[in-house]
Simulated assay, not measured.
Amino acid sequence: MTQSQPNDPRQTVICLKWGDRYGPEYVNRMYRMVSRNTARPLRFVCFTDDPTGIGEGVEVKPMPPFDLPERMRFHPFRRMFLFQETLDDLTGPLLHLDLDLLVTGSIDPLFDHKPEARFVVAENWTQKGQGIGNMSVFRFNVGELTEVWDRFRPDPGAMMDLYRNSQTFVCRTLGEVAFFPGAWVLSFKHSLVPPWPLRFFQTPRLPEDAITVAFTGKPDIDEAARGEWPVRAAWKKLYKHVRPTPWIAEHWR
């Protein structure tokens, strides 16, 4: 397994996989999507509690031991370990990508955008103008955001009770964050699904400038590709609808 060296010219992309929500095929697809969408040397790292099935080319590292409240075992708050002073042997800028998103364009601009910023993130599509990022896509420098970890670690449960989610906690703790251009980082259902009632007749379109497309909540990537939007209450089918979207499969491979 390769290890980083001082002045390593590679761009480092990381993902996290724990529990059984996403299988190793999600990691392998993410690695292939990222590899196809960079013109630069790449280091791709997956922190996981189960490396089974993760393919060649992915550098696997263990998730830190679980010593948080049990309710955080599978909660996004668990990723706060990323903001410690050291992170295994990783250094420099890291680009974090959630496993439930598509990479549809070159990731290189995500490294180049606002290089002076400590934390660059997708602006949360449902909280525009509130200074909150959606942490499906974010970039940071290892060891430079330790105030997040220092505030979280003494009482993780209290932080979970105080903030609705981990991204609000991180952004409020940092106070000021930078955002990627909205045209680069999109939400499938908030950015691309046509408004009602056009969604019954029009297929979501992928803009040329898009770099990533996140699938938060429902539908999942595979469901959206098939034109399925699962709902618990039947009446929600009146507005939660998406047509089959072939371009998803073109990228998610």
Rank of each mutant, 00 (worst) to 15 (best):
residue 107 I to Y: 02
residue 32 R to F: 04
residue 163 Y to S: 04
residue 95 L to A: 00
residue 171 C to G: 09
residue 111 F to Q: 00
residue 13 V to Q: 00
residue 195 P to W: 05
residue 137 V to Y: 00
residue 10 R to Y: 11
residue 15 C to K: 02
residue 148 V to N: 04
residue 138 F to G: 04
residue 48 T to D: 11
residue 128 K to E: 11
residue 38 T to D: 08
residue 74 F to V: 09
residue 57 G to V: 09
residue 190 H to G: 01
residue 167 Q to S: 15
residue 150 D to K: 15
residue 189 K to G: 02
residue 56 E to F: 06
residue 159 M to A: 15
residue 55 G to Q: 12
residue 161 D to R: 13
residue 107 I to Q: 00
residue 173 T to M: 01
residue 188 F to I: 06
residue 83 F to L: 01
residue 245 T to W: 00
residue 13 V to D: 01
residue 200 F to N: 07
residue 90 L to F: 05
residue 43 R to M: 13
residue 73 R to I: 08
residue 47 F to D: 03
residue 96 H to A: 09
residue 147 E to T: 05
residue 226 R to Q: 14
residue 250 E to H: 12
residue 92 G to V: 02
residue 134 N to V: 02
residue 145 L to C: 14
residue 182 G to V: 07
residue 24 P to E: 08
residue 147 E to P: 00
residue 193 V to I: 13
residue 227 G to P: 11
residue 3 Q to V: 10
residue 13 V to G: 01
residue 50 D to I: 03
residue 1 M to H: 12
residue 101 L to D: 06
residue 145 L to M: 14
residue 54 I to G: 10
residue 53 G to K: 00
residue 234 A to Q: 06
residue 232 R to Y: 05
residue 113 H to V: 03
residue 46 C to K: 06
residue 35 S to I: 00
residue 96 H to Y: 15
residue 189 K to V: 03
residue 55 G to Y: 07
residue 208 E to F: 10
residue 176 E to S: 13
residue 84 Q to V: 02
residue 144 E to A: 14
residue 196 W to G: 11
residue 195 P to Q: 08
residue 83 F to A: 01
residue 104 T to C: 15
residue 134 N to F: 04
residue 61 K to D: 09
residue 141 N to V: 01
residue 139 R to W: 05
residue 111 F to S: 00
residue 249 A to Y: 03
residue 247 W to R: 03
residue 37 N to H: 15
residue 222 D to R: 12
residue 15 C to Q: 04
residue 113 H to E: 10
residue 80 M to W: 04
residue 164 R to C: 08
residue 208 E to H: 13
residue 155 D to E: 11
residue 103 V to A: 10
residue 241 H to Q: 04
residue 22 Y to R: 14
residue 248 I to E: 06
residue 177 V to K: 00
residue 105 G to F: 05
residue 68 L to D: 11
residue 64 P to L: 10
residue 52 T to H: 15
residue 196 W to F: 14
residue 243 R to H: 04
residue 19 G to N: 10
residue 235 W to V: 15
residue 164 R to Y: 14
residue 87 L to P: 01
residue 9 P to T: 05
residue 166 S to I: 00
residue 206 L to H: 08
residue 156 P to Y: 09
residue 235 W to F: 11
residue 225 A to W: 02
residue 234 A to E: 09
residue 15 C to H: 04
residue 244 P to K: 07
residue 14 I to R: 03
residue 118 R to E: 13
residue 226 R to T: 07
residue 196 W to T: 15
residue 152 F to Q: 10
residue 17 K to Y: 06
residue 31 Y to G: 02
residue 237 K to Y: 06
residue 204 P to T: 00
residue 115 P to V: 03
residue 49 D to R: 12
residue 169 F to C: 08
residue 225 A to S: 15
residue 67 D to I: 07
residue 197 P to M: 05
residue 197 P to S: 06
residue 58 V to S: 02
residue 74 F to Q: 13
residue 137 V to L: 10
residue 207 P to V: 09
residue 127 Q to I: 02
residue 245 T to S: 10
residue 252 W to D: 14
residue 53 G to S: 02
residue 144 E to W: 04
residue 113 H to A: 08
residue 213 V to M: 07
residue 157 G to V: 00
residue 252 W to Q: 07
residue 69 P to R: 13
residue 206 L to T: 03
residue 175 G to P: 02
residue 104 T to I: 05
residue 69 P to Q: 14
